[in-house]
Nucleic acid binder design. Structure first.
Lengths: 224, 224, 224, 224
DNA sequence: AATGAATGAGATTTCATTCAT
DNA sequence: CATGAATGAAATCTCATTCAT
């Protein structure tokens, strides 16, 4: 994948040496995570990527574009994989659990990425104009679709507010990831995925199902 | 109230003209909200506050200290009022509703403040070293206390995870406020307070209020 | 004596409180010696003198005038005492010894003063326009007069070059005082006065006088 | 020769374009001589050197480093040439005359250099930490060695104090060069070299060279 | 394609100095 | 007389960015 899918003044000569482009992005992610956008210098990144400053401008038209290019690839892969797998998961509740795991896992697995996104990109107005942000939005729609599916098939209560519930999930994930970036706690982010799911699910499941399931489960257990 | 309660290298000559200090802070809040920290210049702020650039440095030792001084007063007042009122509210659920309203209201009522906090301060590592941040932490403890109260008096389920639930609330509020700052939507943030409360409450209230369903759950336990 | 006899834009309201003026000067001398002119701030001096910044400007019209006022009093006293005593000293050689002792003693006794003069004033073009500098020049003439007296009365060789010899003395004294200011060595500057005198005297005394000493030496040698 | 041999935080990227580095140094020497260190601005120097302000910082890490880099090259060449020639000069007296000529000549030939050294560098404490200053110290040792040689081979009296005599020479040279820088007099500095030498030599030469006269004198005195 | 070298463009910050009280 | 408060006026230095090679 090309290094630079960003919107803002994209380089015409996009392809070049994709490996070098990726190396620069990796270096940038690391440096931005460590120092923040302003404190990081293009030279820092160039040194880390073992290229010259000028070379960075062969691949990215500006320092900001370099920043905005960081999530592009990651987000795209993330989103595609979600799109691919979701249809194979049965039930809205299971889909929701999957989404939460994936969402939190994305950050848990890429701490530098998480730090850049939470501490730098989230505060950037220009990022909203980015292609990467469009994918973020698509991704957000997945949640809504799952909620709608759950409501329709009776897994979720009909009176839940999808946008609100998504805000709860999304917000709590970002809250926790931000804490992790800033304070280093908790040690294992991914552990929280089930807690989030459970708490949310308790709040949104429809009463009927709730009962049934539990009854079933209890019975099974009792049998065993 | 003094202009500068911040930690990092506070000016000894704090008081001077508190009104001018406050005017500078107000101007800074406005400018930072509009342009962000980096793009805002000290001159911008000085012009808006109708003082000279140098005067700003009589009140705040650096541009960053000026930034960190913005939440100090607001947060302190907010926290004190919470502390004052909370004891007079009956029941954990009512207290929680109050906290959420206050929390979201803080941002809804001060859009510039909200923007500075969400887009700039949240991403700043140095802000964590600030006195203002200490108050934020105190404030966060209020939530936990309310959850514990609710668990003890049976209003909330005993298996809820206070830190997680707080993350859901806190995270969703910040998520929504950030959206408002960046996208301008929704028109009225405060409307969401009850939605958040209701959704959360549904998820955490104790079964008694829920009767039927939870009976089953209790049975599970009894079986085991 | 008033605090400010300097040329450059002297304050009309000279007298005021001479004690405070002197305190300011003393503080300035100390601070300038410690930090140098540029690094020293008017605030530093004000703090040390226990007055406000503004008060300093009641006594001295500028930071530079304050600097130039430092030597004024000291030099004047020094010069007057020289003028007073010199006539009572017999012989040019004795007078010369006296001048050298006084000259070196001036700095040895006032290390801060020495430091300010050697490290700061000597490099200042504007100092040359100062009244204090005029006294320095007068003082320099003393040397010339002594040499002339010595030449005339046969104590010194008639082919010595007064200006050159003065340069040797003056230069060596300043060289040594500067070293003391910068490197702290030697421990006791005043010890060197006789060495300077002896060495110079050996070079400039007239042959007649020269003899005595050498007789002794020769004899000793012969004996040995 | 590289532009930057100074100690204090030397630029790693030293070489670049040595000619440009030298041009900057030349410009700096000129401007510093004309205006003094503080009054001279980096822009002044950049303009004179026909480079941008920023380019100066590519070659020198700070304005002060630029100042301290001025003597480096000059001093090094001066010292090396001395070291090279001294061994080929017969006798301590001749060597001393050579050193004095060279020493005074160094300043006489480079008026800007002289002014910078005398008015600015001599008062700078930080200059003492410089590599260039180390060479100055080496150079100072040459004098001592010459005196020791002269004492040993009988050219100079055995009771002279090398460090004192050096102070006389060094001090008088700097005194005279400083006067030249500040007052413009005398027209030709180098003329004074022989005067200094003669006067010093008269004071330090051994009596043997003086013999005859002294013998006569001795006899007279003995008679008396 | 890669880069060494050069620079344009400012912004923060510092202080000496002023002046009304 | 003393000073608290305010500010005008710069200057250093930093970097992102460009461009010729």
């Amino acid at each position: 994948m090309p290094a630079n899918p960003s919107k803002i003044k994209s380089n015409s000569k996009v392809l070049k040496n994709p490996l070098k482009g990726a190396a620069i992005l990796r270096a940038a992610q690391h440096i931005f995570a460590k120092k923040g956008f302003q404190a990081a210098t293009v030279s820092d990144i160039a040194k880390k990527a073992k290229v010259s400053d000028a070379t960075i401008y062969e691949y990215f038209s500006s320092k900001e574009e370099l920043l905005f290019s960081i999530p592009a690839e990651t987000i795209r892969e993330y989103h595609e994989k979600n799109r691919e797998i979701l249809p194979h998961i049965q039930g809205a509740a299971n889909k929701l659990r999957f989404l939460i795991h994936r969402h939190l896992g994305l950050y848990a697995d890429n701490p530098d990425y998480a730090t850049v996104v939470m501490l730098t990109l989230k505060g950037s107005r220009n990022f909203l104009k980015t292609d990467a942000y469009k994918i973020v939005q698509s991704s957000a729609r997945n949640y809504i679709q799952v909620f709608e599916e759950g409501i329709q098939n009776g897994e979720f209560r009909s009176d839940i507010k999808p946008y609100l519930v998504r805000a709860l999930i999304w917000g709590s994930i970002e809250h926790l990831v931000t804490r992790k970036s800033l304070l280093g706690k908790p040690a294992d982010l991914l552990d929280l995925a089930d807690d989030i799911y459970d708490t949310i699910f308790t709040g949104i499941r429809s009463s009927k199902q709730d009962t049934t399931i539990h009854v079933n489960v209890n019975l099974k257990r009792t049998d065993a």
